[in-house]
Design a binder for these strands. Structure first.
Lengths: 200, 200
DNA sequence: ATTCATCAATCGAACGTTCATTCGGTTGCA
DNA sequence: TGCAACCGAATGAACGTTCGATTGATGAAT
């Protein structure tokens, strides 16, 4: 049962895709198992064959999407990148991932703000929205005295917070995803995060 | 019917309070009308007397909370505050409001990330989380060349995004609401937002 | 001063629908 | 033969909403 979950059965893939799509357009609400079955062309019985309950399905989907995100954002960092270049690269990837995977963004957004999240807190511990890897990365910048000498969580809040707000803003048409806007945003975050008592 | 809605019937206040509390702990999901009636000690029939549907109740509650937030964040700005002081003051109030009104934060969080929000977009136009007043305030800083000469929405995303991420971080115990942390955060945002070709 | 009509406010049992989940069955591979 | 994958009708609980009844305040008519 769980072996398949890793190897990614076509049925499961269809169920995940359907669930993301439905939650994106109808919300956690308007997404009953019956509609997931319909949209994915997988019988209800089959879904319950893989996931003991709807909660389990949602949680498995969360873990799947989280690993997609984690794989994505740290991808493409070249050896010759200095810290600032990596700082920009990861942040950009973060925003890009959400823009390219709107349904995942929607899902995460709803998942994290639902008490769902709280219930499974213990199990989630690790990388939330890739944050633990992000945390390590930012801590590295602090240790190297490149970034401000503050609690790393303050920098995480800035780094991730601005990225999420940016995606929201683009989604709601207040902002456009242009090179210029992204560059200026990265400048804002960098200027805020950088250690100004240092001449890096 | 609507007159009372403004003058704030005790029953309505009880319904609002119960709804906020239930949504905070059980989510948009686990909050059926029956439980709202129970928790608020108002009969279901009475709730439907004031709100034609559950959606209407939620939306009315949203508008109520939004006005609470708006009243709060721009309160207490003294005449002798310079721009930077106001910039700090409003941001701090924003965070404080959410920390003091956890149920409202939870509710907004869920409301904005649900397709609920999208459905009523037209009607929401105005101050989202107080953002239009915030937008005007930040635009003023741009016009006065105090802040970076960029699209104001970039600064809004930074200003609000960091605040929301901060509240989340505190809520999930990654961060503590201490003077030091708030000061350092405000420093981060300010350094990011400020126009460095100017010596203000 | 008393009667009566009106209507908003209040109530909660009852209704029909929709939901998550179950279960008995079929298929096809090992 | 056995067992995992698969199916969808059936089930019972829970939900949003309706509705007929009751109360009490207001004021016009007597």
């Amino acid at each position: 049962m769980n072996v398949r979950l890793m190897n990614f059965n076509e049925k499961i893939a269809a169920v995940f895709a359907a669930t993301l799509k439905l939650i994106h357009t109808n919300g956690f609400h308007g997404t009953p198992m019956s509609k997931i079955a319909q949209e994915s062309d997988v019988a209800i019985g089959t879904i319950y064959h893989y996931f003991p309950s709807k909660d389990d399905l949602i949680f498995a989907l969360f873990k799947h999407c989280r690993s997609l995100l984690n794989d994505y954002i740290f991808d493409g960092i070249k050896e010759d990148f200095d810290y600032k270049a990596s700082f920009f690269h990861v942040w950009r990837n973060f925003v890009k991932f959400y823009l390219e995977n709107e349904t995942v963004f929607s899902f995460f957004d709803q998942f994290f703000s639902s008490p769902y999240h709280e219930k499974n807190k213990a199990e989630i511990q690790e990388p939330i929205g890739g944050q633990n890897k992000v945390l390590d990365f930012l801590q590295e910048g602090i240790d190297q005295k490149i970034l401000k000498q503050v609690d790393v969580h303050l920098l995480v809040a800035s780094y991730i917070g601005v990225a999420l707000a940016t995606v929201h803003s683009i989604k709601f048409k207040d902002l456009k995803f242009t090179e210029k806007n992204m560059d200026e945003l990265m400048e804002i975050i960098w200027d805020g995060a950088v250690n100004r008592n240092n001449n890096n």
